[in-house]
Design a protein around this nucleic acid. Structure first.
Lengths: 332, 332
DNA sequence: CTATTGAAGTAGAGCGCTCTAACACTTATG
DNA sequence: CATAAGTGTTAGAGCGCTCTACTTCAATAG
């Protein structure tokens, strides 16, 4: 910077102003500085810049599971909104564990990103509140109520209702749920399922198996159902990835989807949309979620708000080929 | 830090030593410092630390496409190896464009990560060489020869041979290739295909369509083949994601895989392994690639080597259900 | 013609750490 | 018993920026 300043014949402070493109610089000296910088291959040091200004113009994004396309899709929405707001993003992954989420967030804390967005974290509320005290925090796709950080979610319960309504509409009564364990939103999806079943007077048909939030959970879940005394005619999997695991296992067993058993997922990822799979699923509007998350975070970063907001957006059902009419009742 | 020092009754320098867990600190004062730090909730500022030491103990990972599971899988391998070597990773995505890769790398340059690993970048050689002059650089899954940065690759050509050999072994002669365009390794895969075809005396049967590196490329590729005058009996797609797009389009057309047409992918991602899909594919040993990349990078970071190394590991073919015997020749 | 304003630029302190060199102090060495 | 060698600790100078307060100079106002 020193070199650039002397080469351009100005002070270091002026170079700094040019680099931050402040309006209080004459066109003439701005050009001189830019030329000198370019010639010397000068690139401002973010570390030093942040050390002095306490800003990085960077948002840390913690994606719990890189293997689930849902996260890649929501990252797109967040990235886009962040760029529009003048921020850049940096990603880290929690690799499907609370400890991983914590480590990822800690890295961002040390990097002093201006804020952190957690997507589908496995952390519990107190851990997130602790984090929120150290930085600006927004939590996406994880239903927790807290008044120290913001949240952005789809209405998971409604998603559960949509699925149960859809399946009962097709004549299904014995609908099983493969649970997402401690995965984000899992509890609410289960509640949605239970409420939905209740609303249709199917409490006695409730069957819950599972699970964690990956494809093996889908496989294991079906395994568990097969081992039971009565196979359901429809399966509601906690998310798409689990649904695909379930699909694999069902087919291995010689069961035809949807003739023998209907299958529904959650998230409407790109996987579900593949014709070859054609998974009926609940869609979360990912671009909207991403935009809301960035908006909330930026409000906090720019001190325009300190109290917590909680956005909830409505999901929709996307019907495809894995759900169909319930098979004829034989003996049961 | 000042506060911690006075609370523990030592100097700032000693606190610094403890934080870097240097061995030249007595057990007694180490404990005192740790206790004081804990009590005050002190967390070292990476920015300041890096500014002073020019080290971040962080590796920047640029994944070209978060939507392709191949990248998530290779990121696992890299993360694991990095942790073992005492480094942490931070991810950024190039969102399937050279400009995106460049922006992601620039961010890491400003953050002064100790090095950068590019996975499947779309940048051209000169851009990467430029980058290599500013930081330690290792390029994975992109076949480029350069003597200023390291590379780690599977032998893409051999992968192409494996596929052609496999298909000709099943009696196929008219084998089409859906090209990966400017995607990483695409050129070599195509060469492998061409060489393989040549080795079997099938130059006249060579058909290349496509493409970019995503699922629409697979769809478009099949479209193009269908529009041609003679449909091939086997299709070799540039990667798994493209293969799945192709699979969709083939099924929409009423063609049965593998009875009417065999389909083979590349990368052996988790998608290929799903029973429901059962895609025959070429496996890249991702954990090995990741470990080699980190090893190379760390050697550079620690100044143990300055000349470029190029690792090439052998791929293997994983046969599944999308490839089968060529259909009976009728009239052709 | 002096006072006021504003625009363009600068000096210099500091952000929170690491690192070099020096300093006590203890313990072995001939 | 002087000297060397090692151990634990510290002062203080940076690392490369930003930010506050200040200066300079020209244009405008009264």
């Amino acid at each position: 910077m020193e070199d650039v300043a002397s080469k351009a014949g100005v002070s270091r402070a002026l170079v700094s102003l040019v680099m931050r493109n402040s309006p209080k610089v004459s066109e003439h000296s701005r050009a001189a500085v830019l030329a000198a910088a370019d010639e010397l291959g000068y690139r401002p040091n973010l570390m030093a810049r942040n050390l002095a200004s306490r800003r990085t113009m960077t948002i840390g994004l913690v994606l719990n599971d890189l293997h689930n396309p849902f996260f890649a899709e929501i990252a797109d929405g967040i990235h886009e909104a962040a760029i529009a707001a003048g921020y850049r993003t940096v990603i880290n992954t929690g690799r499907r564990s609370a400890a991983g989420d914590q480590a990822a967030a800690d890295t961002f804390l040390e990097f002093r990103t201006d804020g952190i967005i957690l997507v589908g974290p496995w952390l519990d509320r107190s851990e997130m509140e602790h984090l929120a005290r150290e930085t600006n925090l927004v939590v996406v796709a994880r239903t927790v109520e807290s008044d120290v950080f913001d949240t952005v979610n789809t209405d998971e319960r409604v998603g559960g209702h949509l699925i149960v309504d859809h399946l009962t509409g097709l004549g299904h009564r014995h609908i099983a749920y493969i649970d997402g364990g401690e995965g984000s939103g899992a509890v609410e999806r289960r509640s949605g399922y239970l409420e939905g079943m209740g609303a249709h007077g199917l409490e006695s048909e409730v069957t819950i198996v599972g699970g964690t939030y990956d494809d093996t959970a889908g496989i294991d879940g079906v395994e568990e159902l097969l081992a039971g005394d009565r196979m359901p005619t429809a399966i509601f999997a906690g998310n798409d990835v689990m649904a695909l695991g379930a699909l694999d296992r069902l087919e291995d067993e010689g069961l035809v989807v949807p003739d023998d058993v209907s299958l529904v997922g959650f998230d409407n990822t790109s996987l579900a949309a593949m014709h070859h799979i054609g998974l009926t699923s609940v869609d979360q509007p990912r671009l909207v979620l991403g935009a809301l998350a960035v908006q909330s975070l930026v409000e906090r970063i720019e001190q325009r708000r300190t109290d917590a907001t909680h956005h909830v957006v409505a999901p929709t059902l996307v019907t495809r080929t894995t759900s169909g009419p319930a098979p004829e009742v034989t003996t049961s």
